[in-house]
Design a protein around this nucleic acid. Structure first.
Length: 801
DNA sequence: GCCAACGTTGGC
DNA sequence: GCCAACGTTGGC
């Protein structure tokens, strides 16, 4: 059966789902497949890591199952081999295959996918052209096209996503979207296959495909295979992936030597063909009634009664909670999805110890005898060949908790782990069967360590590196609903083009800068945004070194890299949108805030201009600069004739001590203001604090330098040219102390329009024409005076008027 | 160099 | 099945 590797491999590579009927419609893709498959099939035989042809055949046998019912197209063993090969050498063929992989996204590329899975470490190939791979799909109507894309990396590698393309060019990703685009009832449309059905919906498919393992490569694994033991190697025994078990189940029917892993005495109960369920490894760890005794394993094939169907069976199959015995059939039927989160960690033998180097079964130990005498397909590793790696023992003290990995482990993980435990209970006396949790974590941790330096780990980190998980933005779970990214989201009625996380939720430390809720800092912080929080934009080489260098500005050491103080440095920021309703723009006041924010704190209503020395030239120049700056921006806005809504916000440093609820209340008010008509050219923005600010953006307004600041408690303050009005200002007497509604805000804004800014006092002595006019103000200047009054009484008093 | 767009992948 | 959102690409 090994003479025709193509035939034996093909079934294993067949996508388990549908596709049979589809293939006729994918002729073009199949043509590609033909040539690529030839490359695929050759991989095992050309694998230099295989020592002998016999070993290659052994692998083929395992992979192909010798004509057994189709197995999953993710053949872990092959994958392992290939991975091992990848780890131990640079396989030129692999490179060529990578190229093939790049072309294998379209329909019918399933077979090719097997190759893709073999090279998850390969850098992502060139993305296929969006126009490629589409197949006319008349089932949906004239002009519709369909395309299948196989995920090329990640833990869901190999998974197929189906897309449809409407005649109008709408790209549909799901049934929901399809319903939207077609505006038809698609309830009888099977999205995956692209067909309509009559009557009852087709029964849910039993997915043969398991979650693929990925990132499962290690040199130790490779070296292990070099022992030439094929299926009998500790490696195979140590596999956790159920798919391997399936392989074992399938292959054991034709080849005892390959029936190594975890088949059970009742494996024949596996449903055949389409309904054949890949069974998990048998359980033997806590709280099984047949734990290892003195390292002995072999009680597993005792008779149990299935808690579901009452059928007696042999083995140690339990439900996923491991509380009740489940026969394999019920176990399988209880699994709609196999270990979605499992990374298929392995116990990876060191490959160096005496046990690992021993390639000959002693034939005397209990495990050897068990293998020879028991029909149980589980082949247990000869005790003389167990890994006795001292490193493993040193680290096997039960202190392996690896929170992240462990937290990812679903309850179903036990099923896999039990097998691991079965193998290692005796191997690792310190790990009792009751140490299931630690044990499972142990494995994961160990694997993490093993793989910590490979690209795979990099991949994982890469995917996760945009979130520190600690900053307030990361902890925030609620979308603001107002930023451009939120607006883009379908749930907010957007077109889902940007597909980015809410700007307020972008990690303040690790998100790319352009995703952070500011861009205004560009001018203030330098064109490259140096000094701003967040990661610099990538240059697609992801060589952060050069980028981070730029990040070290003089004002802030916000190389966010991991500065725990980042939050404290968080600056007011804004975001932009190209969607029209929210537009990238600059708040003049906000720009000024960069300098004066601290002095302008909500809690401080004491004027910072404490005396008439405010007339000092530097003070006046600063004001002038502010005014000039603000007016310049206002002019730009007006020239653009586009509504300006600048949002500035930070979840960092909630100095008011209010919780997220209060923040949210403030955001709600912001939203209400945004959806309301405010007095002309008043805009609501959110800034650090958080603080809601109402700003007048028109230089034509007498309130151009006036802001209303609302804190999370809805208390407000009015500032003019960054200086707060004294609490004694009569304005405050006319309005409630807290602005809790749009109406109250609007009333205040309307009231402000009745005021003008105190003009202060002109210099006593006329200055040369070219000199700037320096105004003086009293320390108690009202700033805002009625429009028919140009100078407040305090300034007048200062001059003795 | 920026950024809109979107392929892709993780997670529920 | 669907959504969220990360990372990359190509156009500008």
């Amino acid at each position: 059966m090994n003479q025709k590797p193509v035939e034996t491999l093909l079934p294993g590579k067949e996508p388990v789902e549908e596709d049979v009927d589809q293939r006729t419609e994918k002729k073009s893709s199949e043509r590609d497949n033909t040539s690529e498959l030839s490359g695929t099939e050759e991989t095992p035989s050309t694998d230099p890591a295989k020592e002998t042809p016999a070993e290659v055949e052994e692998e083929d046998r395992k992979a192909g199952g010798g004509g057994e019912p189709p197995v999953d197209w993710f053949e872990p063993l092959e994958d392992d081999d290939d991975d091992a090969d990848s780890a131990s050498r640079n396989d030129p063929e692999e490179e060529s295959l990578a190229g093939e992989s790049e072309r294998s996204e379209s329909v019918g590329g399933s077979e090719k996918t097997i190759k893709k899975m073999y090279q998850p470490k390969m850098p992502r190939g060139k993305r296929s052209h969006p126009d490629e791979g589409w197949v006319e799909w008349p089932a949906l109507g004239q002009g519709w096209k369909r395309k299948e894309v196989v995920r090329r990396s990640g833990s869901s590698i190999g998974q197929k996503d189906v897309y449809y393309l409407s005649p109008r060019g709408d790209r549909v990703r799901s049934k929901v979207e399809l319903a939207t685009v077609m505006n038809l009832d698609v309830s009888k449309f099977e999205y995956k296959t692209g067909t309509f059905y009559d009557g009852e919906a087709p029964p849910p498919r039993v997915r043969h495909r398991i979650k693929r393992k990925i990132r499962e490569r290690s040199s130790s694994e490779s070296s292990f295979m070099e022992h030439g033991e094929g299926a009998e190697t500790p490696d195979s025994l140590h596999r956790l992936t159920p798919s391997l078990g399936s392989k074992g189940v399938q292959s054991n029917q034709t080849n005892l030597s390959s029936s190594t892993t975890f088949g059970t005495s009742n494996r024949n109960e596996d449903p055949p063909g389409e309904h054949k369920i890949r069974l998990p490894p048998p359980s033997s760890s806590k709280p099984l009634p047949f734990p290892s005794i003195n390292g002995e394993i072999g009680k597993e094939d005792s008779t149990l009664i299935c808690a579901r169907c009452s059928v007696s069976f042999t083995g140690t199959w339990y439900d996923k909670q491991r509380k009740r015995p489940f026969c394999p059939s019920c176990w399988a039927s209880s699994k709609s999805r196999e270990h979605p989160m499992i990374r298929f960690r392995k116990w990876i033998p060191c490959g160096q110890c005496v046990g690992c180097h021993n390639t000959v079964n002693c034939g005397q130990c209990a495990n050897c005898k068990h293998g020879m005498q028991s029909p149980d397909t589980r082949k247990r590793l000869c005790r003389k060949r167990r890994c006795i790696c001292p490193i493993r023992k040193e680290s096997g003290s039960g202190s392996f908790i690896h929170q992240k990995s462990y937290s990812d482990i679903p309850d179903t993980f036990d099923d896999s782990m039990s097998y691991q435990s079965e193998v290692t209970d005796s191997q690792q006396p310190s790990l009792k069967s009751s140490d299931t949790e630690n044990f499972s974590v142990n494995i994961d941790m160990e694997d993490e360590d093993e793989l910590s330096t490979d690209d795979d780990d990099d991949w994982h980190k890469k995917r996760k590196r945009r979130s520190c998980g600690e900053c307030k933005a990361c902890l925030c779970r609620k979308d603001c609903g107002a930023c451009d990214f939120c607006i883009d989201k379908p749930k907010f009625g957007g077109s889902n083009k940007k597909r980015q996380k809410c700007r307020l939720r972008q990690c303040q430390r690790q998100a790319m800068r352009h995703l952070l809720p500011f861009q205004m800092g560009q001018g203030e912080y330098g064109a490259d945004g140096s000094g701003l929080p967040g990661r610099p934009r990538p240059h697609y080489t992801y060589s952060r070194k050069s980028s981070l260098k730029k990040n070290k500005g003089p004002h802030f050491d916000l190389d966010a890299t991991d500065n725990e103080d980042d939050d404290c440095n968080f600056q007011p920021m804004n975001w932009s949108s190209s969607d029209g309703n929210v537009r990238d723009n600059q708040s003049m006041q906000q720009l000024n805030d960069l300098d004066f924010g601290v002095r302008n704190g909500m809690s401080d209503r004491v004027p910072h201009i404490s005396n008439h020395n405010s007339s000092q030239p530097d003070q006046q120049k600063r004001w002038d600069a502010e005014r000039s700056h603000a007016q310049r921006h206002a002019k730009e806005e007006e020239e653009d004739e586009l509504p300006m809504i600048t949002q500035i916000f930070s979840l960092a440093d909630n100095s008011a001590g209010s919780g997220m609820d209060m923040d949210n209340q403030l955001i709600k008010l912001l939203h209400s203001l945004r959806s309301s008509v405010l007095p002309i050219l008043w805009y609501a923005i959110m800034v650090e604090g958080p603080q809601l600010q109402l700003i007048q953006c028109s230089k034509q307004s007498s309130m151009t330098d006036t802001m209303v600041l609302i804190d999370p408690g809805f208390c407000y303050q009015v500032t003019v040219q960054k200086q707060p009005l004294l609490p004694t200002h009569p304005l405050y007497d006319s309005y409630p102390a807290r602005l809790t509604s749009v109406t109250e805000v609007v009333n205040l804004l309307l009231g402000l329009e009745k005021y003008a800014v105190c003009q202060g006092l002109p210099p006593k002595q006329p200055l040369p024409d070219k000199d700037p006019i320096i105004l003086e103000r009293a320390s108690t200047c009202d700033f805002l005076v009625k429009k028919n009054v140009s100078i407040c009484i305090h300034c007048r008093a200062l001059r003795g008027l």
